[in-house]
């Protein structure tokens, strides 16, 4: 597979994952801030900005300002509309590699987010609808991808993009919350804290899964355990890292480049989550999560060195 093609598939997938994550976080928090005083709400939105891959240089004036910028504002590179536009642009460059069904799906999504530049009042009323159908569109794309594309090299680059992004954005979101919010290791939560922490679970689509695992008795320690270390929940960090590792192994096998740097980095991160215990990490959780964000970015650059932007001399020697 051409390196440029791998690059586009990888980023197409990362941008879609980013858009879905953003849509869910905005949706959950919009709901959540309705229950709070305006000054609390402003602090709340400010905190969400800290969890973005590149914290933007603006502060939200109000909830609707934040929502506008985070969803349809094309000037903001992290907005849902910008991410989906970038995903589509990447898909267009590899039109011959993806299935027609995938191309149609990503276009449907693109037209959906671009068609939503409406007046502020209407916009507020339709926000929930817009966000849930965006999430639905990205999930549809993932389903169509799995059902119509050969699970070969290209598909593994798509997987890799999705899970590198998920690892990084989930870790960043958790890190900010565990750093900025007061929390007590194993106490029962008061009402306002309860709302706050359930919001975090919902932002990772994890509240129902959490309840099935631990019952609705919400404790911060369990949240950390579930979202970081659970290996069966698809939006936990452990699960995502396992998928990264297995896609990297499949890619290494196909290209005959086993034991590359990306493989080793992912293996090390996976081992720390495979064998890690919540008691060991809970004390230094923000630092641990920062470490995960850093390692996800190292894996990203190692993939580039190995498959995409390698020096030509090394290619000719091989």
């Amino acid at each position: 597979m051409l390196s440029r093609v791998a690059d586009s598939l990888y980023w197409m997938s990362r941008y879609l994952e980013r858009a879905e994550h953003m849509a869910r976080v905005v949706n959950v928090n919009l709901n959540l801030t309705l229950d709070r005083a305006p000054q609390d709400a402003a602090r709340h939105w400010g905190r969400l900005l800290l969890a973005l891959p590149e914290p933007p240089p603006w502060a939200p004036r109000s909830a609707s300002d934040f929502v506008e910028r985070a969803t349809v504002d094309l000037a903001n590179r992290e907005s849902i509309a910008a991410c989906i536009g970038a995903a589509r642009e990447n898909a267009r460059q590899v039109r011959e590699e993806i299935s027609t069904e995938m191309w149609e799906e990503v276009n449907r999504l693109f037209l959906h987010v671009r068609g939503n530049r409406v007046s502020e009042r209407e916009w507020t009323a339709g926000t929930h609808e817009f966000l849930t159908s965006t999430i639905g569109g990205v999930q549809m794309f993932q389903g169509v991808t799995d059902a119509t594309m050969t699970h070969g090299e290209g598909w593994h680059f798509i997987e890799l993009g999705r899970y590198v992004e998920r690892t990084s954005s989930t870790a960043a979101l958790l890190e900010v919350q565990f750093r900025e919010c007061a929390w007590d290791d194993d106490q029962e939560l008061g009402v306002s804290e309860y709302v706050e922490w359930v919001g975090l679970l919902k932002s990772c689509c994890a509240f129902e899964a959490y309840c099935r695992h631990y019952t609705a008795d919400v404790r911060t320690r369990r949240i950390a355990e579930f979202l970081v270390l659970n290996d069966q929940f698809p939006r936990s960090i452990h699960f995502a890292v396992r998928c990264i590792k297995s896609s990297l192994a499949a890619l290494a096998e196909r290209s005959g480049r086993a034991n590359g740097r990306a493989d080793r980095l992912a293996g090390r991160l996976k081992a720390s989550l495979d064998y890690g215990q919540v008691d060991e990490i809970i004390g230094e959780l923000p630092a641990f999560l920062q470490g995960i964000v850093r390692q996800a970015s190292q894996i990203n650059s190692a993939v580039y060195q190995q498959y995409i932007a390698y020096p030509i001399e090394s290619a000719l020697a091989g």
Binding site: S3, R257, Y310
Partner: peptide
């Protein structure tokens, strides 16, 4: 067949190669 752009190809010793994930 592969759809390539100019930047995907390079020439070494008068032979044309493309840059792939498995090397040239």
């Amino acid at each position: 067949i592969d759809l390539v752009e100019g930047r995907d190809l390079f020439v070494h010793d008068n032979v044309v190669y493309m840059r792939t994930t498995a090397g040239s």
